[in-house]
Design a protein around this nucleic acid. Sequence first.
DNA 1: AATACGGGGCC
DNA 2: GGCCCAGTATT
Length: 317
Amino acid sequence: MLQQTTIAAVRDYYTAWMKRFPTINSLAQASEQEVLRQWEGLGYYSRARNIHKSAQVLDAAGTELPKDYKELLKLPGIGPYTAAAISSIAFGLPHPVIDGNIKRILCRIFLWPKWNKERETQASACLDKWIKPGPAGDFNEAMMELGQKICTKSSPQCGQCPFNSLCLAHKENRQNEIPEATSSRQIIKKTCLIICVHHNHILMTEKKQGLLKGLWVFPALQGHELSPVLEWLKKHDADFKGPLVLKIQNHLYTKYKDQLLPLVFRLESTISLNEEKGCWIPLDKIGDFPMASVYRKIVGELEKCLEKKNTRFICLP
DNA sequence: AATACGGGGCC
DNA sequence: GGCCCAGTATT
C-alpha cells in the first residue's frame, strides 16, 4: 500500500484490509473484485491485483511469506524496495532499503545531481556498510523517517540532521538544488462518458486492460463532441432520451488531466454491448462494484440527479 | 532508459 | 493548479 502512497492515505485502508484479510489464505480465497473493492480509492490498482496473486501463489504452495530477499523478489508486486523492507523490518535480515527518501538523502550527502544505475550500485555498497552495526529494520525505518521529517524535499532542516557534518550539499549550502527537479507538463484529454439509465439500472463495463484494469467504467468516447456519441447510441439500437449533461469531472493521473463529460441517457429498453460485455447494474448494488474515485463520484452525482422528480431528459429532434 | 500506472494532501 | 509520495512492471 505504501508504494508511492503517503502513510496518511494508507492508514485506514490498512486497518480495514487487515480486518477483512487477516491471513494469506483469506486473501487468496477472496475474489479479485472484492480485493479491488477494498483497495478502491488508493490508486495504482495493479498493486491490489498483485498482492492478491502473491497470496494465491503462497496459498497454493502451502508456504508462508518468505524471509529471503531474492525469494520475496519473485512474488508479483514485490520489487527491490518492498523485498528489502519486508526482509529487514519484518524478519531482521541485514538488507538496506532504497526508497525515494533515501535517494534524496544520499544525493545530498554525496552531491549527486540525479539518481541513476551507477548511483544505485554506489548507494547499496554504502548502505551495506552503514547498516552492519545494528538492527537493519530500525536503520531502514530511521533513514526513511529522516527523509520524511528532516531531509525533506523542500526546506530541509539541516540543523537537526545527524549527517550534516558530512553532507556535501549542506557544506555548499546547495541542499535546495539537490537533487535536480524534474518537470513534465500536463497533457489534457477530453472524454465523453455514455451513461445509459434504464429504470434503476445503469450500464457499465469491466475494464479488461490498461488504466483501471479490473474496475468498472462507463462506455466512453474520446473528445467532447456529441455526434460520435449519438452515432454510438444508434449503432447499439438505443431508444433514448437525453442527454442530460452532468458537470465535467477531471480525472487526474500522473501527467494526464482527463476531462470527463458525463452524458446521461434514459433508455426505453436495455441494449447490449458488442465486444465490451456490458452489465446493467442495479443502483442499489452499485457499491459492490469496484471503480475509480472519479467514477464513484459521478455515480453519486447521477443518483442525486435521478432522485429529483423534475429531472428532464432533453428529446433531441 | 522511459513510460504507464491513481489519488489525496499540501502549498 | 502543480508537485509529491515507504515503487513496480512493462516497453
